[in-house]
Design a protein around this nucleic acid. Structure first.
Length: 286
DNA sequence: CTTACGGCCTGGGTGC
DNA sequence: TGCACCCAGGCCGTAA
């Protein structure tokens, strides 16, 4: 499940592999997750890949068209749950569920594979870019403690819902929110408005620690995430609560529990992460 | 405006 | 062996 660390890892691999390359051909399998596949066929061939960046969980491919001179466009790719972008030889065997083939001028091919097709691909002009990116909040690795407090503190929603909200912060998903909350000892159902300033600061610091370590370990491979070279990440070995229901808390030994918060499975330690009062006594039996 | 929630997309895994 | 069903993450519409 690609979140910030996985997308960052993919982006770094892509950057090394495709920046400067020219696109020679585009072919598709299924296209129902692509905004305008005909536009990709029409506009991508001939483009030079000028840069690769990450915005939240989006992979951002900056493209330069030959004509008109200096025309620019941006390919936005969201990996959804099971999206993979892998660069390899054009003759390499094709993995099942591969739906986009982008041939490059060095004989290699960039391929997009997505079992569920929850991913999204769209080509936008620079004029359209703001409306696509504007609604995203700041990057968790760049936001300052002050900004973090300002965006989160005082709001009445549950802290987990806010951390998952891409317009509040862009890049966190279920795994890294749960891991951050456990490390900061904050219960997922606490209302942000009820968090003490000290807890908000701890959350900010912990979130960044978790994400930096996860990037260093090239992300978490829980189901089928792989980076641009097709390699799995290692951060799943550091997970302390995610998908560990019933297992012992690494800190205190209590049994990890699961509740649904913001429509998502949420794993936490009932002893390290104290529930807010209004939830005490009616936590699920399991 | 803010928040909560249900539904939708798809198909692998699970359990009967 | 087959098959119904759950579930994942993001997003959108709707309601309060």
């Amino acid at each position: 499940m690609p979140e910030l660390p996985e997308v960052e890892t993919v982006v770094r691999g892509l950057r090394a592999a495709v920046v400067g390359r020219r696109i020679t051909d585009v072919r598709f399998g299924k296209t129902d997750f692509i905004a305008d596949p005909a536009a990709l066929v029409r506009l991508l061939p001939g483009c030079r890949i000028a840069g690769v960046a990450r915005r939240g969980k989006f992979v951002v491919l900056r493209l330069e068209r030959m004509s008109p001179p200096n025309a620019r466009a941006t390919l936005l790719i969201h990996l959804g749950m099971t999206g993979q972008i892998v660069v390899g030889g054009a003759a390499a065997p094709v993995s099942p569920h591969t739906h986009v083939f982008v041939a490059l001028d060095d004989g290699r091919e960039l391929r997009y594979t997505d079992v569920r097709r929850f991913g999204r691909i769209s080509l936008v002009s620079d004029a359209q870019l703001p409306e696509n990116v504007l609604r995203l909040g700041p990057d968790p690795l760049e936001i300052t403690a002050g900004e973090f407090q300002k965006r989160i503190g005082g709001r009445r929603a549950m802290i987990k819902a806010l951390l998952l909200d891409q317009s509040v912060l862009a890049g966190l998903g279920n795994i890294y929110v749960d891991e951050t909350l456990w490390r900061a000892r904050v219960h997922p159902q606490r209302l942000a408005v009820r968090l003490r300033s000290q807890e908000l600061l701890r959350l900010h610091r912990t979130m960044r620690d978790v994400l930096r370590e996860a990037v260093r370990l090239r992300g978490s491979s829980v189901s089928d995430y792989v980076d641009a070279e097709g390699q799995r990440g290692d951060y799943q070995q550091r997970h302390r609560v995610y998908q560990r229901e019933g297992k012992r808390c690494f800190r205190c030994g209590a049994a990890i529990r699961r509740v649904v918060v913001a429509g998502r499975s949420s794993f936490f330690c009932p002893r390290c992460q104290r529930a807010p009062r209004r939830h005490r006594g009616r936590r699920g039996v399991g």
